[in-house]
Deep mutational scan, measured.
Amino acid sequence: MGFKLLSKLLVYLTASIMAIASPLAFSVDSSGEYPTVSEIPVGEVRLYQIADGVWSHIATQSFDGAVYPSNGLIVRDGDELLLIDTAWGAKNTAALLAEIEKQIGLPVTRAVSTHFHDDRVGGVDVLRAAGVATYASPSTRRLAEVEGNEIPTHSLEGLSSSGDAVRFGPVELFYPGAAHSTDNLIVYVPSASVLYGGCAIYELSRTSAGNVADADLAEWPTSIERIQQHYPEAQFVIPGHGLPGGLDLLKHTTNVVKAHTNRSVVE
């Protein structure tokens, strides 16, 4: 069995187990497998329904001669939608809004960016022009300005110390501490036991640490421990890039980060 097929099978099995364990909360999309990078042309966006009122959005972007996937989250909030992270750029984010209108038909009224990198804030200006209120932590807003990236308009308070959590509509926002970046936030959907790890969490097929220019490698494993301790009931975990899975993604990420750190020390 090929690795790609095995990865998709694991996603399907995880979703099936969740649907059985929580039949009222989960209505997993039966329309197909989780979209992969090879299936999404740059400039297009796919939506994948995880649970009743919960979707991931998947886009792709060219970077350094390669094409990478990027995940975000959409959560229903009454007759409105909360968006977590842009679709990595203005063109993708405009396509995301169009796809949401086509498939869901509810307005996106608020959006949260989970850290300051372009795959999370690139497209904020498109959201703002569409009347979406954009939010991020003060740290993310400051770092985005320093980096020359787009800056969300509103500040999220109460997320300055490791372990801080605040309720934001249908989700809980959690600051686990520094990891992929010093400002990275985690998003949890309690009604569906869905954990969105953003770039602080890796997919299972990833074996290298990737972009760690703004990471705190020493603190990252401790931050992941905080996530595990705060959300032990999480059933569906979405990484910032690639295929979702279960809580095993947290341990896998820790292993990859520690291996990278150990290699760096040896070198």
Rank of each mutant, 00 (worst) to 15 (best):
V146C: 10
W88K: 00
S62K: 09
S70Y: 04
F26A: 12
G122R: 08
L73C: 03
L185C: 03
F174A: 01
D216W: 06
G2F: 15
T222H: 14
M18H: 15
G148W: 04
P107K: 14
V75I: 08
V171T: 05
V256H: 02
D183Q: 02
P176W: 02
I104M: 04
R128K: 13
L9H: 15
T60D: 04
T253K: 01
V237H: 01
P41C: 04
A200P: 01
H57M: 01
T153M: 11
V146H: 14
S139M: 14
I74W: 02
V257L: 11
S70W: 01
R76W: 05
G246N: 14
I17P: 05
G246R: 08
F236A: 10
V212W: 06
G65T: 09
V212N: 12
G240L: 01
F116R: 03
P176C: 01
M1N: 05
D77W: 08
S31P: 11
L106N: 05
V266C: 05
A234L: 05
V166N: 05
T114K: 04
V146T: 14
E172W: 04
P244H: 04
K251H: 12
D77R: 02
L106D: 05
V37C: 08
D79E: 12
S181T: 15
R142Q: 13
A111H: 05
L159A: 01
A144L: 10
A234H: 02
S155G: 12
K4P: 05
T60I: 09
E145C: 07
D52G: 10
L156G: 02
S137H: 09
G65P: 04
Y48K: 11
W88D: 00
G197C: 07
D214K: 07
E225K: 12
S27L: 13
I238L: 07
V54H: 00
A111F: 07
N255S: 12
V237N: 00
S31G: 10
L243I: 15
W220M: 03
I74R: 03
D164G: 08
G53N: 11
A25C: 14
T109V: 13
P23V: 11
Y34E: 08
I201D: 04
V37R: 09
G158T: 05
V37H: 14
L247V: 15
Y48E: 09
L143Q: 09
N255P: 06
P107S: 10
V42M: 08
G53Q: 10
A90K: 09
A51M: 07
A136W: 04
S137C: 01
V187Y: 01
L159F: 07
G65E: 13
V121E: 01
W88T: 00
S208I: 12
V132Y: 00
A144D: 04
A234D: 00
R110L: 07
L249F: 06
E150Y: 03
R226D: 04
G53A: 08
T222C: 06
A209F: 08
S31F: 10
L10F: 15
T86C: 04
A218G: 12
D77H: 07
K4A: 05
R141D: 01
V54C: 03
